[in-house]
Amino acid sequence: MSGSGTTGPRTGTLRGWRPVLRRRPRPDTGGSSRWARGRVLAVSAVLTAALLAFHSAVPNTVGRLGSLLETFLPWLGLAVPLLLVWALLGRSVTALVALLLPAAVWGHLFGGRFLAEGRGAHDLTAVQHNVSDENTDPAGTVGTLLDGSPDLVALEELTPSALPAYEKALATTHPYRAVEGTVGLWSKHPLSAARPVDIRPEGIDESWNRGLRATARTPWGDIAVYVAHLPSVRLGWKGLDSGQRDESAGLLGAALADERLDRVILLGDLNSTVDDRGLDPVTSRMDSTGRAFAFSWPASFPVSRIDHVMARSGTVTNVRTLPATGSDHLPVAVDIGLDRASGRDRGR
Rank of each mutant, 00 (worst) to 15 (best):
V274F: 02
G63L: 09
G278C: 10
V197E: 05
T144R: 08
R200I: 08
L73Y: 09
L14D: 10
A216Y: 00
V97L: 13
G236C: 01
V274C: 01
G148A: 09
M1H: 08
A299Y: 06
N318M: 01
G111E: 03
L78Y: 14
L52Q: 08
L124T: 01
T317C: 00
A216M: 12
V334N: 03
L96F: 01
H108Q: 12
P164A: 02
T61D: 12
N60Y: 04
N209K: 15
S272I: 02
R245Y: 01
G77L: 02
V40C: 06
A104R: 13
Q128N: 15
V142T: 05
K168G: 07
S313V: 04
L146G: 11
D28M: 12
W237F: 09
S232P: 02
S232M: 05
A292G: 06
T48V: 14
R291P: 04
S300M: 11
A324K: 14
G140T: 02
D151C: 07
W75A: 09
S296C: 05
A95K: 12
D137A: 13
R34D: 10
A79N: 09
L84Q: 01
N130Q: 08
R195E: 13
G112H: 10
D246K: 02
F72C: 00
R346W: 07
G236W: 02
P25I: 13
V127C: 01
T125H: 02
L261M: 04
E180R: 14
G181F: 09
S132Y: 10
I223T: 07
S161W: 06
T71Q: 09
R312H: 10
A224S: 12
G143L: 09
A299D: 11
W220Y: 15
G120H: 10
A103F: 06
G290V: 07
S327C: 07
L109S: 06
P298T: 08
A126L: 04
A311S: 08
A45L: 07
V274M: 12
G347Y: 00
L101M: 11
G314E: 09
T13H: 11
